[in-house]
């Protein structure tokens, strides 16, 4: 492992050569606010909510490791589907907030949702000046639905 230098400065010159080779390569960085990086489809950026699919089962809120999902709902009587049938009660979502100041982006809520109401979107530009604005209400979570990409193709093997 011992490296004996024949002449002083050879190590330095070799290092300079590496630097010179890299100097002639194209930069790998991008100029962020002007150019935007496209994240991979699976990137966990922000959680989108499909309010129609949600049945207020509270599984996501219970399984969340830091309990940052706030859900409220109530039962509503629906008119019978066929004439002569009986009216059905249906759970309606009143409040669905995710506090992104608390969220640790583990994805457990998306995974446990039995009715496919939650999706990951790779969007990342939603920082706020005030920490209270990091609480996204249901309307804002629904807006994220537009940014959910198609899942990537899988490896053939």
């Amino acid at each position: 492992m011992a490296m004996r230098m024949k002449a002083p400065g050879i190590g330095l010159a070799k290092g300079m050569w590496v630097t010179l080779v890299n100097l002639l390569k194209k930069p790998v960085t991008i100029n962020y606010p002007k150019e935007k990086e496209i994240p991979v489809p699976r990137a966990r950026g922000v959680i989108a909510l499909d309010t129609d699919a949600c049945t207020v089962c509270m599984l996501c809120a219970r399984e969340c490791p830091d309990w940052c999902i706030y859900i409220e709902g109530h039962k509503e009587m629906q008119p019978p589907a066929k004439p002569g049938g009986r009216p059905r009660s249906r759970a309606t979502l009143d409040r669905f907030d995710i506090d992104y100041a608390l969220c640790m982006y583990c994805g457990i809520c998306v995974e446990v949702c039995p009715f496919d109401a939650l999706f990951w979107s790779p969007s990342y530009e939603y920082s706020e000046g005030s920490i209270a604005d990091m609480l996204h209400p249901k309307e804002r979570l629904t807006d994220w639905l537009k940014t959910v990409p198609k899942p990537p193709a899988l490896e053939k093997n």
Binding site: F119, W120, V148, P151
Partner: peptide
């Protein structure tokens, strides 16, 4: 299963 995507 599950993750990011509409029919994931």
């Amino acid at each position: 299963a599950a993750g990011a995507g509409s029919d994931q």
